[in-house]
């Protein structure tokens, strides 16, 4: 469903070439639920942007749903859903349902199927109470649920999420997580998410990709990930170890 082959992306910053991503190769099968980890600046978002067709790889090859994202961007956009946790696609000043209506027209979803799908998502994401509220008045948790619904109304085959749980409280996080599991299990939607919340990884992902310095540093199941460190290490310790390989780890902070 998603395939990258020695994909790379470099930027020219004041004459110097910066490699945000290099030689990245991985393959995600239909129906998988994959978490993408990596320290800040590792190249996760650049990778996501290449998968969505926003950025063209400067080397290598990327295929999503059988399409080359940068060349068949429009065709691809109809088959993937994208949510950036720190941004919103919703119309700030208008009621939430107006944004959904725009999604219907944009993706040319049949009216009847759209209504059914919207009902389903309204129920699953518990949107009922605020579809008539202007988006600027929604809480972050409500807005994120709205954004998720907007990304799924056209029933995409692939869902790409960039930090979908950022800034959310425990209850909202749990709601979003169980929804994502449901989408993946019931509709067979392939999910790729980046996150810094290791709870997301533990509870959601069957497979983990770890990107560091723009390269793939680990690819395997959560069990394999845990096995990279001695027995009793928590997932936090395991990931810290992987992030700080070849560097001095920050001193551990004891709980007060």
């Amino acid at each position: 469903m998603i395939e990258t082959e020695r994909a790379g992306r470099s930027f020219k910053v004041r004459g110097a070439v910066v490699h945000a991503v290099r030689d990245l190769s991985f393959r995600i099968e239909p129906g998988e639920f994959v978490g993408c980890l990596g320290p800040n600046g590792a190249g996760k978002s650049t990778t996501i942007k290449m998968l969505c067709g926003i950025l063209t790889p400067t080397s290598g090859r990327v295929r999503v749903a059988g399409l080359d994202p940068s060349r068949a961007r429009t065709a691809l956009a109809r088959r993937i859903g994208v949510v950036f946790g720190q941004r919103t696609t919703l119309w700030w000043d208008l009621p939430l349902r107006d944004s959904f209506e725009l999604v219907r027209l944009l993706y040319k979803v049949d009216r009847k199927l759209f209504a059914a799908r919207l009902d389903e998502l309204t129920e699953a994401l518990d949107l009922g109470g605020f579809t008539r509220t202007p988006v600027r008045q929604l809480s972050l948790g409500q807005r994120m649920r709205g954004d998720l619904a907007a990304a799924l109304l056209h029933d995409p085959e692939v869902l790409v999420l960039d930090e979908p749980t950022i800034g959310l409280d425990v209850v909202s996080k749990a709601g979003i997580r169980s929804f994502l599991l449901r989408v993946n299990a019931e509709r067979g939607t392939t999910v790729l998410l980046t996150t810094h919340d290791l709870g997301d990884v533990e509870r959601l992902c069957r497979r983990v990709l770890l990107i560091d310095h723009g390269r793939l540093a680990f690819d395997g199941s959560v069990g394999d990930l845990m096995a990279t460190a001695p027995g009793t290490a928590t997932i936090e310790e395991v990931v810290t170890r992987l992030y700080t390989r070849g560097r001095a780890a920050p001193p551990p902070v004891e709980p007060v």
């Binding site: 239909p30 059988g66 509709r187 392939t190």
Partner: peptide, 18 residues
Amino acid sequence: MPARRRPDHNPGLPLAGP
């Protein structure tokens, strides 16, 4: 692994492929 349906809400959509 669940098999992926053709996007049936919109028959006009192309299937992935060459």
